[in-house]
Computed example of a mutant assay.
Amino acid sequence: MVNLLFHEHAMSVLRNVVIAYFSKYEVDLVRQRKARRLQRQQFWAAGVNDLFAVDQHDKWLRFGLASHTGIEPFTGRIMWMRVWHSNQNPQLILTYYLETIQELGHRFFFMSFYHNAIDVVITDMPMVTQSDPGSENFGIANAHTMLRQWHNLTLQGTLKHRWMCMKKNVMPEITWSQLRHRFTPGYENYLDSGVDAGWYDCGNALQRLIFRWIFIPWLQRELDGYKDRINNTAKRHDQNKVLPRGVPNLIYDSPGDFGVLDFRIILEPGAIGRARNLNLNLNHAVFELVPRDFGDFIHQCYNELGHPVVDRRSAWNVYLDLHQIISRLYKQLPPVVLPDDNLNDDFLPLLENHEDLAFRDGNDGAYYMGGVGGGLGLGVFSPCMQH
């Protein structure tokens, strides 16, 4: 609790103050905790690729930064973790999903009957996607449902996406909490240092564009490194979870070696491209880091600086140097440099005449949100995850 107050609310509270508070105002919770009788909610997953859970993160919006992640709950594998200047546009969020399942493809080479070398990429996807309610997730819900229905006509009329209305979107929330504890504090302090020094004002359009151009690619590299560390590190044993023990990447890539089921759906060649063509306008401005003309201009200024490396030691220095050059050449700026404030006003309607997946909620508080058995799960849930 002390760490949570510090990192989430910037409050430095002594441990004995927290203990005194709970002893006075939360007597029953303290008694339950001491008796180890806290009620745990149980979240069940039938196996690998039962579902992907996605969620956005808005803690850095004061810097003009928006984050998004996708999790494979059974293995705990982070499928993507992205930072951009928006996380509310349904087309943008959909690209994260489509790019991920495209990258999961496996390349095979074999010889045909006529001794010609054939190169085939096999791609796959989970049974179900899951998110909080919100129109920014309509793109994933639509495209994933279309992909499932193209490969199984019996699924017509059923949305293959879960909306977490009554139940919390558990796994992404845990991932964000861990990120806030393990990754965020140092980087957030570094970003705050530039704001506190008066170098960056998110409300200033020119400063915001320069900040985006420098900081988003650097922070994305740092997040990629964090994701790889998490996915290649075995998680600590938890007596409250019945899961295979091992490295998330290894469990995901070779579930049979860990004695667990794999529910991945193999896609036909070209299916992802077809979904992309039907649901995306890749010329949309939301996909641009900064407006194109301004991007060309700032790149020229960056080259004038000698193409300096951007990292934690240099990011603010590069920002200040670029800001100085661009301010001096202000009259040479492209005529359109302001970002479109309506990038998120791109409403995408949800598929019509589709019913939600069936839902199974056990009498013991356990609930299943995957896609096995039409959403009702296996006859006997095994293995499970408990939170």
Score class of each variant (00 low, 15 high):
L267T: 05
F297Q: 05
G306I: 10
D262S: 13
L289Q: 06
A315R: 02
D296L: 09
R312S: 15
L289A: 06
S314L: 05
R312I: 12
L278K: 02
F297K: 07
V290L: 03
V290Q: 09
F263C: 05
K331G: 09
I326M: 01
F263D: 03
V290N: 03
A275G: 06
W316L: 00
W316K: 04
N279M: 05
R328H: 13
I272L: 10
C301S: 10
F294A: 02
E288Q: 15
C301V: 09
F294T: 07
D321H: 08
R328F: 12
K331H: 11
D262V: 11
E288F: 01
R264D: 07
L267M: 06
A285K: 14
L320M: 00
E288Y: 14
V290K: 01
I326K: 00
V318H: 02
I326W: 00
N317S: 12
I325H: 02
R312H: 15
R328Q: 08
K331I: 12
Y330I: 15
Q324F: 00
N281S: 12
S314R: 05
R276G: 04
P269D: 02
P269R: 03
R274W: 04
F263H: 10
N279Q: 06
E288A: 14
L282A: 00
G273A: 08
D321F: 03
N279K: 09
